[in-house]
Nucleic acid binder design. Structure first.
Lengths: 107, 107
DNA sequence: TTGACGTGATACCATTTGGTGTCATATTTA
DNA sequence: TAAATATGACACCAAATGGTATCACGTCAA
């Protein structure tokens, strides 16, 4: 029931390659090898990004044989969404309504 | 009508000090001197953070005499909000677990 | 069993980042 | 005018970051 730390989550999203990975994993689960095929960098570099994403709680990993399947973890966005909601007073668009929906409040 | 770049915005929010500054400016406009009084760092360091925030479009600055008044620019959040909205559908599917995550409960 | 495959881990490197100290400049104020 | 105030702009430094190359280890298939 301790709130997840916010810094690893923001840090994970601060890199464009990591945001691309998140977008890819939103479409389908992928192994490191599959992800590496889509980037112009080594597997070791992709692995580092995956570690940062995992530290940020944005992805989960499960083992299947010799493969490691990476999946998006939507709950991991909560710290960012929650922090942004502090600024609801400044905008009355979709974020506010999303936050309301999440909290089960009336719009 | 060109969409603002997303990377400077995410980068600006990736630092805890800068997020604190954003929170402070959400309450009231402040000069660099006033902000520096609230941090345990030099004015030069705060100035660097303000430059990053400005590059990210999250704050605006206006001059009043010898002072420079820093203000929050709510529209600057748009790139981040828009990027996160790509996952709306993903969240809708798992709204219950996201709700739990935000409330700090176990899934 | 013997490779080939998929991955993790580590050492190493260049660049970026967050911080300080210092000096220069513009604006108030005594 | 002279001094105090408020700020901007550098040069510099240690640490973090994003990348590579390389080696080690478990798993699958011939």
């Amino acid at each position: 029931m301790t709130a997840p730390p916010i810094q690893p989550c923001f840090r994970a999203l601060a890199d464009p390659t990591r945001r691309d990975i998140v977008m890819m994993l939103a479409r389908s689960d992928m192994t490191i090898g599959q992800l590496t095929d889509r980037f112009d960098m080594t597997r070791a570099a992709v692995k580092k990004h995956l570690t940062v994403l995992s530290d940020g709680g944005l992805i989960t990993v499960r083992t299947r044989g010799r493969e490691r399947i990476n999946s998006l973890n939507p709950e991991g966005f909560a710290p960012v969404i929650n922090w942004l909601s502090h600024f609801d007073q400044f905008w009355d668009d979709r974020l506010a309504s999303l936050k309301s929906a999440i909290e089960g409040n009336e719009p």
